[in-house]
Design a binder for these strands. Sequence first.
DNA 1: CGTGTAAGGAATTCTGACACG
DNA 2: CGTGTAAGGAATTCTGACACG
Lengths: 89, 89
Amino acid sequence: MSWNDSTFKDKKVITIGTVSELTGLSERQIRYYEERKLIFPLRSQSGIRKYSFNDIEELIEIANHIEDGVWTNEIKKEMRRRDALRPSL
Amino acid sequence: MSWNDSTFKDKKVITIGTVSELTGLSERQIRYYEERKLIFPLRSQSGIRKYSFNDIEELIEIANHIEDGVWTNEIKKEMRRRDALRPSL
DNA sequence: CGTGTAAGGAATTCTGACACG
DNA sequence: CGTGTAAGGAATTCTGACACG
């Protein structure tokens, strides 16, 4: 019933259509980035994807990288590097 | 593309089914509280209701009042009283 | 490689109404 | 008064595939 404020950003409750509006990305792009293991939406029982505000921010970063000509493959590597640097956060 | 953190709670992006899961209220109840002017979801172009985390917290408060036997009518009055007390916030 | 699109089906949401109390 | 439900329709989302390059 109540969350500490910092948790709102992590609550996966937003539907793909809304994410598309918020980011300007097509649903096709958003699903593709998931296929490439760059983003991990929650799934409802019936299979509907749910994203958090954090996911939205990551999607924008991913899209920016791709616009710069970076492959999803490289983005994935960069993510792993970043995660390795801050193991406790 | 980017929001200051305090804004997340106010972004109306959550669908009624998810709100129902999060609050434990039925969709019927949630729509009824809107009919009684206690809650004000955003509407997508096609008419789909979108709620914020703040709305969810308010819904829980409303439901608690009703469980205590308070009428929506009274809850509305209380809301007006509260709003009048902090005009600048 | 990253993205668009048409295809068919399943799940979601909407409104107005009848019911109970 | 507040809430449940069945009804019919409209909008959303899902997957797998073909296309282009």
